Simulated scan of single mutants.
Amino acid sequence: MNRKVAIIIVSHSVNIGQGIKDLISQVITNVPILMACGIDNNEIGTSIEKIQAVFETMDSEAEGIIFYDLGSAKMNAEMAIEMFGVKNLQIAEDVPIVEGAYIAAVESNMGKSKDEILNSLAKLKVKEF
Protein backbone atom coordinates (compact mmCIF):
# COMPACT_ATOMS: atom_id res chain seq x y z
CA MET A 1 0.00 0.00 0.00
CA ASN A 2 1.23 3.47 -0.85
CA ARG A 3 2.15 5.48 2.24
CA LYS A 4 0.54 8.93 2.48
CA VAL A 5 2.66 12.05 3.01
CA ALA A 6 1.93 13.41 6.49
CA ILE A 7 0.75 16.98 7.05
CA ILE A 8 2.33 18.59 10.11
CA ILE A 9 0.82 21.81 11.47
CA VAL A 10 3.06 24.03 13.61
CA SER A 11 1.00 26.90 14.97
CA HIS A 12 1.18 29.25 17.92
CA SER A 13 -2.46 28.42 18.61
CA VAL A 14 -3.98 25.03 19.37
CA ASN A 15 -7.30 26.40 18.07
CA ILE A 16 -5.78 27.35 14.71
CA GLY A 17 -4.13 23.95 14.36
CA GLN A 18 -7.31 22.10 15.34
CA GLY A 19 -9.37 24.23 12.95
CA ILE A 20 -7.08 23.35 10.04
CA LYS A 21 -7.19 19.68 11.00
CA ASP A 22 -11.01 19.80 11.27
CA LEU A 23 -11.31 21.47 7.85
CA ILE A 24 -9.12 18.86 6.16
CA SER A 25 -10.75 15.97 8.03
CA GLN A 26 -14.15 16.86 6.58
CA VAL A 27 -12.96 15.75 3.13
CA ILE A 28 -9.83 13.64 3.71
CA THR A 29 -9.81 10.86 6.27
CA ASN A 30 -6.78 8.71 5.56
CA VAL A 31 -3.90 11.22 5.49
CA PRO A 32 -1.98 11.73 8.73
CA ILE A 33 -2.61 15.26 10.05
CA LEU A 34 -0.26 15.90 12.98
CA MET A 35 -0.22 18.98 15.20
CA ALA A 36 2.50 20.68 17.21
CA CYS A 37 0.56 23.70 18.40
CA GLY A 38 0.84 25.97 21.41
CA ILE A 39 3.06 25.49 24.43
CA ASP A 40 2.46 23.88 27.83
CA ASN A 41 -1.16 24.17 28.96
CA ASN A 42 -2.01 24.95 25.31
CA GLU A 43 -1.09 28.60 25.70
CA ILE A 44 0.00 30.70 22.71
CA GLY A 45 3.49 29.94 21.41
CA THR A 46 5.49 27.17 19.77
CA SER A 47 7.63 24.49 21.32
CA ILE A 48 10.55 22.58 19.86
CA GLU A 49 9.67 19.77 22.27
CA LYS A 50 6.11 19.51 20.89
CA ILE A 51 7.47 19.46 17.34
CA GLN A 52 9.97 16.74 18.22
CA ALA A 53 7.21 14.76 19.96
CA VAL A 54 5.30 14.76 16.65
CA PHE A 55 8.43 13.54 14.85
CA GLU A 56 8.71 10.69 17.36
CA THR A 57 5.20 9.48 16.55
CA MET A 58 6.09 9.09 12.89
CA ASP A 59 7.50 5.98 11.29
CA SER A 60 11.16 6.55 10.37
CA GLU A 61 10.32 5.98 6.70
CA ALA A 62 7.34 8.36 6.66
CA GLU A 63 7.53 11.58 4.71
CA GLY A 64 5.93 14.80 5.83
CA ILE A 65 5.46 18.45 4.99
CA ILE A 66 5.46 21.04 7.75
CA PHE A 67 3.18 24.08 7.59
CA TYR A 68 3.66 26.99 10.00
CA ASP A 69 1.77 30.14 10.91
CA LEU A 70 4.47 32.65 11.91
CA GLY A 71 8.22 33.06 11.54
CA SER A 72 9.11 31.79 15.00
CA ALA A 73 7.11 28.61 14.33
CA LYS A 74 9.24 28.08 11.21
CA MET A 75 12.40 28.73 13.21
CA ASN A 76 11.40 26.18 15.86
CA ALA A 77 10.53 23.64 13.16
CA GLU A 78 13.94 24.17 11.54
CA MET A 79 15.70 23.72 14.89
CA ALA A 80 13.67 20.60 15.69
CA ILE A 81 14.54 19.09 12.30
CA GLU A 82 18.22 19.81 12.88
CA MET A 83 18.23 18.54 16.47
CA PHE A 84 16.22 15.42 15.63
CA GLY A 85 18.18 14.75 12.43
CA VAL A 86 15.16 13.99 10.25
CA LYS A 87 15.73 13.81 6.52
CA ASN A 88 12.27 13.00 5.21
CA LEU A 89 10.45 16.15 6.36
CA GLN A 90 10.37 19.48 4.61
CA ILE A 91 8.99 22.87 5.56
CA ALA A 92 6.57 24.45 3.10
CA GLU A 93 8.11 27.91 3.04
CA ASP A 94 6.11 31.03 2.24
CA VAL A 95 2.93 29.01 1.68
CA PRO A 96 -0.39 29.99 3.31
CA ILE A 97 -0.95 27.54 6.16
CA VAL A 98 -4.63 26.75 5.60
CA GLU A 99 -4.70 26.57 1.81
CA GLY A 100 -1.30 24.87 1.65
CA ALA A 101 -2.13 22.19 4.21
CA TYR A 102 -5.48 21.52 2.53
CA ILE A 103 -3.98 21.15 -0.96
CA ALA A 104 -1.16 18.99 0.38
CA ALA A 105 -3.65 16.69 2.12
CA VAL A 106 -5.74 16.32 -1.03
CA GLU A 107 -2.64 15.52 -3.10
CA SER A 108 -1.27 13.15 -0.47
CA ASN A 109 -4.60 11.34 -0.54
CA MET A 110 -4.21 11.04 -4.33
CA GLY A 111 -0.92 9.22 -3.73
CA LYS A 112 1.40 12.02 -4.81
CA SER A 113 4.94 12.07 -3.45
CA LYS A 114 6.33 14.74 -1.13
CA ASP A 115 8.25 16.31 -4.04
CA GLU A 116 5.18 16.37 -6.28
CA ILE A 117 3.17 18.05 -3.53
CA LEU A 118 5.91 20.61 -2.90
CA ASN A 119 5.92 21.43 -6.63
CA SER A 120 2.19 22.12 -6.47
CA LEU A 121 2.62 24.24 -3.36
CA ALA A 122 5.23 26.39 -5.12
CA LYS A 123 2.34 27.96 -7.05
CA LEU A 124 0.91 29.25 -3.74
CA LYS A 125 4.09 30.91 -2.51
CA VAL A 126 3.76 34.47 -1.33
CA LYS A 127 5.24 36.73 -3.97
CA GLU A 128 7.14 39.91 -3.28
CA PHE A 129 6.25 43.01 -5.26
Rank of each mutant, 00 (worst) to 15 (best):
S11F: 02
S11N: 05
H12K: 05
V14Y: 07
V14N: 03
N15G: 10
I16C: 06
I16H: 12
G17E: 03
G19F: 05
G19K: 08
G19R: 03
K21G: 00
K21P: 06
K21Y: 09
D22L: 01
D22H: 13
L23P: 14
L23K: 12
I24Q: 01
V27R: 05
N30T: 13
V31M: 08
P32D: 08
C37S: 11
C37T: 15
C37H: 08
G38A: 03
D40F: 15
D40T: 14
D40M: 12
N41C: 03
N42Y: 10
E43Q: 14
I44M: 10
I44T: 13
I44E: 05
I48P: 11
I48W: 09
E49V: 14
K50Q: 08
K50F: 03
I51G: 00
I51C: 03
Q52H: 13
A53Y: 09
F55L: 02
E56N: 05
T57F: 07
M58R: 05
D59I: 12
D59H: 15
S60I: 15
S60Y: 12
S60N: 15
E63F: 09
G64L: 01
I65V: 11
I65M: 00
I66C: 01
I66H: 02
F67Q: 01
F67Y: 05
Y68M: 06
D69Q: 13
L70F: 14
L70K: 04
A73E: 01
A73N: 03
K74L: 06
M75W: 11
M75K: 07
E78D: 14
M79H: 10
I81H: 02
I81Q: 00
M83K: 14
F84H: 12
N88G: 10
N88L: 08
L89V: 14
Q90R: 13
I91G: 04
I91Y: 02
A92W: 08
D94L: 09
V95M: 01
P96T: 10
V98S: 04
G100E: 06
G100I: 07
G100H: 10
G100M: 00
A101C: 05
A101S: 13
Y102A: 04
I103R: 01
I103S: 05
A105R: 06
E107V: 14
